[in-house]
Design a protein around this nucleic acid. Sequence first.
DNA 1: TTAACCCCTTGGTTGTGCAA
DNA 2: TTGCACAACCAAGGGGTTAA
Length: 351
Amino acid sequence: LDVIKQQLQEFIPHVKNISDYSIRKIAGRDLARFKEFKKQGIAVRFGRFTQKENDQIQKNVEEFLSLTGIDSAEKLLFSYKYPEERKTIQRLKTKHQFCEKISAGIPRPWRLIYYRARKIYDPNIRKGKYSNEEEKKLLRYQARHGNDWKTISAMMSRSTLSLGRKYSIIKSAVNNGHWSKKEIQKLTHAVEEVIKKRIEEEEAEEEENVLPSSETSSRDLLIEREKLYYNLPWTEIETKVGTRNWRQCKQKWHTILRARMNKGKEVIRGNEALQMKINLIKRLHEMQVEDINDVKWIEVCNAIGDFPSSYLQDKFYKLKISCVPLWRRKTFSEIINYLYEKKLPEFEEQL
DNA sequence: TTAACCCCTTGGTTGTGCAA
DNA sequence: TTGCACAACCAAGGGGTTAA
């Protein structure tokens, strides 16, 4: 297993956080694929699927359908809905190497590709905000069928995941609206506690590895910025706060942190805000990134100033929707180029 | 008066673990 | 090979406040 982990490290930087169980799964099917991609000079990808990858999945599915004669993607990917044909479909999948074919040309673990394919072809996925009528329906159906989201999904044309989460939101007893002083205090304490605990654990680990004292002493003076917001155990913090769910906690913490990093100033306005926009556009343009998933937001933050990365991501989003016409139809690099060529001179002029 | 900004909520997507 | 549960991250939008 250690040998496999070492080999995978090259393709999956976070491999040490993955359980042995999943490592075995990935090793069995993906390691050889990853090596093959490497030979072609293609790196393994994580994060959001790009349009190109989504197109490739659809192409793979269509080719597999014509190869096997299975007559629809729904039958291929949701065969449990067709009990009479299920066995035949299964046999065809094994015979024609379903996994290999479906993941061809996409440098990601096959399992994630399979999930993405199911999402693309799921006939029950309706998106957008739940209406009052839908919420009432959901409560009614849940009372009748319990948490059988598959059945409810067929009745409401929403994905099982969406329904499950919406129900838990409706039923949860968490507070909404403005945070009270007491809640903010609780949150701050909770975050401080988990960060302290984490640092103590890391120090203990370092002591075990007996690092030379010069390497550790300079780091004791301050907490690295990323530790204040990156990879915090939000469900643990949710439990400690008690009255808010983890997503509310996370976002509130980022707001508190941003104000603190900004010397207590609540809002950034005027020339300072303008300068931030200019820096953001320039930095993103310099990075020459094709897809938004490839932006290293922490690096952008380091280059621009003291903000949690989520703040800059939000800033970029707002900039995009307010300044770029037809932004939905444009690729990320087209959006950046538009901002750089059309808006940057305007902002600099205003400054 | 209004554009800019922030707070907050919520739906969508990806990633992991486990089990059958 | 497939399904399910859940954690975590990302995108988007509504609405209130305030500086210009």
